[in-house]
Design a protein around this nucleic acid. Structure first.
Length: 1059
RNA sequence: GGGUCUGUAGCUCAGGUUGGUUAGAGCGCUCGCCUGAUAAGCGGGAGGUCCCUGGUUCGAGUCCAGGCAGGCCCA
């Protein structure tokens, strides 16, 4: 006979058992094998870096990264899930620097690049085991054995192939541009790295006089030559020595003012803000008039025609400063651009370590940021400083060494992404972003203002830039494969075997195809974001291998990462793919929010506020975390990860699911229900069965539609609602069907239905909470079923079962039940006390106003009323009562008002109306004549005694609480049964145990017990009921009911099973 | 400074369906009920300036404009 075991209550133990099952039976592999011939659903793994510990924030995208592949697999799609590891880049180098205790590039060179790079290679795997352990424990199914690794030669070769394509098509160029640069690390930083290091700082904000030396070539003419200055503004005094020009705002109006014998020119809108003390406005000057003026810079270090003039620019800030901005092309992006446009000389008196050179003797050898006070002091002495305050703003620091970054013009290699800008925008539009504003806003905006991709890094651990330069003719070639390397190499044997990393690859010299001279590799490595962004191609070692695999897995149907990847991986995937393959490499992208700590601050290792996922996994389990992340709010919402929030779903959803199954297991085991033996014809299904099966289909539809639209919340809400309906309505209302003896068709119908509901529910939730789904499935599965729920097909919607009329009826029924409870509450009558009737007014236009006998029976049981009457109006249950209106009676009748009110109250409504037929009536109260007018009486609707009214929306329910003797006795019987059941529980009997019941009772309980002996015996499974306590009982206890006492004795008795 | 998201009950939040009676849920609190599946369930109650200001409208939590606060991305 079939036995259903209860689930293990402890989620941890339960899940660990499931993990063992999956491992032993290789379910993940089988799920892939089983779908191999199916349509492809392509997922790309965004590679994590394993040199840091996984923290809770990493879990958020992972949950969706697992949900959709599982869902699609169950639908029959083949979802290969190749893992991946991101392994290159500055973060890895910095970890190693820390380990070996070095702090600069010269120190690395001294340590030995080879040793250094090898340590990087090891460091990358430091937490690999930890990542794998977490991924496995959370039930994230991904193929880690065949994961792509960005540092392998094969991967690098594919990246080289891409780069060579780009080079040959003119996408790679060497440029001289301003980059954020760390003077201590000696390299430019990627925008990603810069973003990590912004800090609020106070910098000096100064305005400086720059005297006009010539107005030749400008429309503005000086009125007071020699004492007129442009008032300029900067927050980086140290850049003043590099000044080569001034910028004014296009379309702004400027003004000349007189103050203390000098004339100053600045933006009109900023006069009051920028000037100290009184001033006299001399005249307004349109911006065009200032263009071309020559001025005296604070430090004239250049002798160049083009320098020290006024130019117009778009970027000038008109909210702070003076509206005249000092420009140093060497130290600012805007400045550099202006310099390019206007043909300004490029001048930088600063060396690579960030110190002034001899070109600026005042501060030679001083680190630039430390030169600020020296320069300010100097300007002050020379009378050039107008104002000096502090200015608070965000400034980038090197996120590792804390050195302030400099915007620094330097040589580096770029990808001309701007050349494909329109195509990028077009391809981006084809991607379905969830939420859509990522595509339209955040990334879209970035693409509109696209800049070329700064590709090269002056570092060691990364994909080496595959460009070789000829020492003779300066020709540059790109090497697109190892074969090409061997072909051009001087030492072919070396080229055949060399590891493609620095420093090894640097030893490979090529022969110039033009002049035959030696070619050497450029010293750079590339931005690690190019590596991961190339995974669409490089994960397959394409085009050198796996051409088929590449073809069938491009583009991806689905990717998902956190929002910080917008300009990281999402962008680099899109950019490389657009250039190489011409199209977007993914179609759907869910962008998750960030993991926040209990205070709403982003979790990050550097802030030290990360939660160790194990602390939660080991207490609540993987399913609980998965459900919390899926169901609590939309994926892109940031989530606070307080413990209290996370454990919510454990009770609300997972425990309800477990209890629902346990209920089935308890009774199905008692009755030996076996879905393979017990069948039932559809006609035998009850109304509840039809209803819950309809709801099952509707839920399946909602979940499927939700997931198909990448709308997770709609799916989880549908599932939570359905589970509630199963547990709190279907089972609650069906309990008596399961308790009945024997195996009647109705009981089989109930079992069959509940079984079907459970099996399908478990399949529906399997992609979300794979562990509990598996644990229940293992108990439910028939011998012919697949060995895991994850090998089963996802439930299909069967529209035939959807019965919206019935669902409407049942919804109404549940509202009525709810109102009934409310009415009982108000009347203070227990549910155990049977009542004669409830009367429900259903507004005729309300849907489903016709309720079938079947559902009415449910309400009757639920509310314990003998009848439920549905009426179109409750009018007849009210009667009118005349009520005196003291507001009018009082002023008119004075002392007689009270007596007149008495008279009104003493009449019936009908009498009062009749008396008032003519508009007023003269009566005598207290022996005096009094006139009562129409307005003195209002008619109020009053409920008859014993009725309680409750209403909600269009529904009104009247509960008749009048009791007669029969009802009273029925109430007593239920009370007695209830007490005996409690005693059974207290005695520790099993629910199937039969008992002998003895009692000694006073009147009237004794008579009640005698009269209802059969009913009570049946309810409490008593084979014998004896009006005496003679003999031994396992439990004997006195109970009091409404002041009367009865003593019960209970003992188990043997009873043949199965009848 | 730019972009973007968020702001609703003590807490966490309703992809807040097209503007429309009394703004909801869960948790927590509180009172009561029910229990022959339940770490449960049901009902009542307390708890709201829907961030602010202005506009459009017969009517705004919802639409528009401008602010404020916070998060994130970028300068």
């Amino acid at each position: 006979m079939k036995r259903y075991e209860k689930l293990i209550k402890d989620p941890i133990a339960r899940e660990e058992k499931v993990l063992i099952l999956w491992e032993n039976k290789e379910i993940f592999r089988k799920s892939l094998d089983a779908t191999k011939g199916g349509p492809r659903y392509v997922f790309y793994e965004g590679p994590p870096t394993a040199n840091g510990r996984p923290h809770f924030g990493h879990l958020m995208p992972r949950v969706y990264k697992d949900l959709f592949p599982r869902y699609k697999t169950m639908q029959g799609f083949y979802v290969a899930r190749k893992g991946g590891w991101d392994t290159h880049g500055l973060p890895v180098e910095l970890e190693v620097e820390k380990e070996i205790g070095v702090n600069s590039k010269p120190e690395i060179e001294a340590y030995g690049v080879e040793r250094f790079v090898n340590r990087c290679k090891e460091s990358v795997w430091r937490y690999k085991a930890e990542w794998e352990r977490m991924i496995e424990r959370m039930g994230f199914w991904i193929d880690l054995e065949n994961a792509y690794i960005t540092y392998t030669d094969d991967y690098i070769e594919s990246v080289w192939w891409e780069l060579a394509q780009m080079f040959r098509r003119g996408f790679l160029y060497q440029g001289h541009k301003v980059l954020p640069y760390c003077p201590r690390c000696g390299t430019g930083l990627s925008s990603h790295e810069v973003a990590q290091g912004y800090r609020k700082v106070q910098d000096p904000s100064i305005s400086v006089r720059m005297r006009i030396v010539s107005d030749e070539g400008a429309r503005y003419k000086q009125e007071r030559p020699g004492s007129t200055s442009l008032l300029t503004w900067t927050t980086t005094p140290w850049t003043l020595p590099a000044n080569v020009g001034l910028a004014i705002a296009v379309k702004a109006t400027y003004a000349e003012v007189e103050q203390n014998d000098e004339r100053l020119i600045l933006a009109k809108a900023l006069l009051d803000q920028a000037l100290e003390g009184d001033y006299r406005l001399v005249c307004e000057i349109p911006w065009e008039d200032l263009v071309g003026l020559s001025y005296e810079p604070p430090y004239r270090l250049l002798d160049d025609e083009r320098a020290y003039r006024v130019h117009a620019a778009e970027f000038v800030n008109m909210e702070e400063g003076t509206g005249i901005v000092h420009t140093a092309p060497a130290f600012g992006e805007d400045d550099y651009q202006l310099g390019q446009e206007e043909g300004l000389p490029f001048f930088s008196p600063v060396d690579v370590a960030g110190a002034f050179t001899e070109e600026f003797p005042l501060c030679a050898g001083t680190f630039v940021k430390e030169a600020d006070p020296v320069i300010i002091e100097d300007l002050k002495k020379r009378g050039l400083l107008y104002q000096h305050t502090l200015y608070e703003h965000d400034y980038p620091f090197c996120w590792r060494c804390g050195t302030p970054l400099l915007y620094y013009a330097m040589d580096s290699w770029y990808i001309r992404t701007t050349a494909v800008k329109d195509q990028l925008i077009k391809n981006n539009r084809r991607i379905n972003w969830y939420p859509s504003h990522v595509g339209e806003g955040r990334l879209g905006d970035f693409l509109l203002n696209l800049k070329d991709w700064a590709l090269s890094r002056d570092r060691y651990w990364g994909t080496p830039l595959n460009l070789w330069t000829c020492e003779g003719c300066e020709k540059v070639i790109a090497v697109g494969s190892r074969a090409e390397l061997v072909e051009s190499a001087r030492d072919k044997e070396l080229a055949r075997t060399v590891e493609l990393h620095r420093p090894y690859i640097d030893r490979v010299a090529l022969r110039c195809p033009e002049c035959g001279e030696t070619m050497r590799r450029v010293p750079n490595v590339i931005d690690a974001w190019f590596d991961s962004g190339s995974m669409h191609t490089a994960q397959w070692h394409y085009p050198f291998e796996n051409k088929e695999k590449f073809k069938e897995s491009f583009p991806a149907d689905f990717i998902c990462e956190a929002t910080d990847q917008t300009r990281g991986w999402f962008y680099t995937l899109l950019a490389t793919s657009t250039i190489i393959h011409g199209e977007a490499p993914f179609r759907n992208c869910i962008v998750t929010g960030l993991g926040l700590d209990a205070d709403g601050i982003k979790m990050s290792t550097s802030k030290g506020n990360v939660i160790d996922p194990w602390d939660l996994i080991n207490v609540y389990g993987a399913d609980c975390l998965r459900w919390y992340l899926c169901a609590s709010s939309a994926p892109w919402r940031s989530k606070r990860l307080g413990e209290a929030d996370v454990k919510g779903p454990l009770y609300r959803f997972l425990d309800t699911l477990r209890n629902t199954y346990d209920f089935f297991a308890l009774y199905a085991s008692i009755d030996g229900f076996d879905p393979e033996d017990h069948r039932v014809e559809e006609e035998r299904l009850g109304i509840l069965d039809h209803w819950i099966l309809s709801r099952l289909s509707a839920t399946t539809k909602a979940v499927t539609e939700g997931l198909d639209n990448y709308d997770v919340i709609t799916a989880t809400e549908a599932l939570e609602g359905f589970l509630d309906e199963v547990s709190n309505w279907y089972i609650r209302s069906s309990r008596r069907r399961f308790w009945k003896g024997g195996m009647e068709p109705d009981k089989i119908a109930a079992y069959t239905t509940l079984y079907q509901v459970l099996v399908n529910l478990v399949k529906l939730v399997a992609p979300f909470v794979p562990f509990i789904a598996e644990a229940i499935y293992q108990q439910l599965r028939k011998s012919s079923d697949p060995e895991s729920v994850h090998l089963y097909g996802y439930p299909q919607v069967d529209e035939v079962w959807i019965n919206t009329t019935l669902e409407g009826e049942m919804a109404l029924t549940r509202s009525i039940a709810s109102l009934g409870h409310q009415a009982r509450n108000q009347a203070q009558v227990k549910v155990r006390q049977p009542l004669s009737r409830a009367i429900v007014e259903v507004a005729s236009e309300a849907e489903g106003c016709v309720l079938s006998e079947g559902v009415l029976a449910l309400v009757k049981t639920e509310l314990n009323v003998a009848a439920v009457e549905i009426v179109s109006t409750l009018q007849p249950y009210f009667h009118e009562v005349p009520a005196p209106n003291l507001r009018t009676l009082g002023p008119r009748l004075g002392p007689l008002a009270q007596q007149a009110a008495e008279w009104i109250r003493s009449k019936t409504a009908a009498d009062a109306r009749e008396a008032l037929a003519s508009g007023s009536v003269k009566v005598e109260v207290d022996g005096k004549p009094v006139e009562i007018k129409k307005e003195d009486i209002s008619f109020q609707a009053v409920l008859s005694n014993g009725f309680v009214l409750v209403e909600e929306g269009a529904l009104r329910l009247l509960l008749d609480t009048n009791l007669d003797e029969t009802l009273r006795e029925k109430g007593l019987v239920r009370e007695l049964v209830h007490r005996i059941q409690l005693l059974r529980k207290e005695a520790g009997f099993e629910v199937t145990d039969r008992i002998v019941l003895g009692y000694r009772a006073d009147s009237p309980l004794g008579e009640v017990l005698v009269r209802n002996r059969e009913t009570i015996a049946a309810e409490v499974l008593a084979l014998e009921v004896k009006p005496t306590l003679a003999g031994d009982y396992e439990l004997q206890q006195k109970v009091k009911i409404e002041g009367n006492a009865v003593v019960f004795g209970l003992s188990r008795t043997t009873y043949p099973r199965g009848t």
